[in-house]
């Protein structure tokens, strides 16, 4: 029950960020992927299955804006949550550099999948969208993770794994 409540609260926190905060911190249309940051945090700290469930539902929430693609983001977030939760037991993610790489890689993976689906009918625009929004979103999200690392408790991420 507590995990369920935690997931619902995090879903609302992420929604609040998307609706209220993201437009304020957006730089030329690029905003950090807070959903992915939460998935990574959960995967490293809470491990599965909380990260999996949050990732799945957050993906559904994200896809609500583009009903035609419903399910894709859920799948991508799910895979990221599962993947990180899976490898976190085998590697040590306590170092800052490792976490940076992890966040950047995860966001870049999601953005790749996201733009592949979005630009499925127009493959030529994929590179532009991926470079213009995908990589920049990955960089921005990594920066936010770097800043959040100084928050109390965040530095414990990785050690728990």
């Amino acid at each position: 029950m507590r995990d369920f409540a935690s997931i619902v609260i995090w879903l609302f926190v992420a929604s609040f960020w998307e609706v209220v905060v993201a437009p304020l911190v957006s730089i030329y249309g690029v905003k950090p992927d807070i959903g992915m940051i939460i998935v990574i945090y959960m995967a490293l700290f809470n491990r599965n299955p909380v990260a999996l469930i949050f990732g799945f539902f957050w993906g559904v929430v994200v896809d609500s804006m583009v009903p035609g693609n419903l399910g894709w983001s859920a799948l991508l977030y799910l895979l990221v949550g599962y993947g990180i939760g899976h490898i976190s037991t085998r590697f040590h993610w306590g170092t800052f550099a490792a976490q940076i790489l992890l966040v950047f890689g995860a966001v870049a993976f999601y953005q790749t999948g996201h733009f592949v689906v979005l630009n499925f009918d127009e493959p030529n625009t994929f590179v532009f969208h991926f470079v213009r929004y995908g990589l920049t979103t990955a960089l921005y999200s990594t920066l936010i993770w770097g800043l959040l690392r100084y928050f109390p408790g965040i530095h414990q991420v990785g050690k728990a794994a």
């Binding site: 879903l11 609302f12 929604s15 998307e18 609706v19 559904v60 929430v61 896809d63 609500s64 804006m65 009903p67 419903l70």
Partner: peptide
């Protein structure tokens, strides 16, 4: 489903 998601979270 998208409508439900929007109505609940957004």
């Amino acid at each position: 489903i998208a409508e439900i998601g929007i109505e609940i979270f957004y």
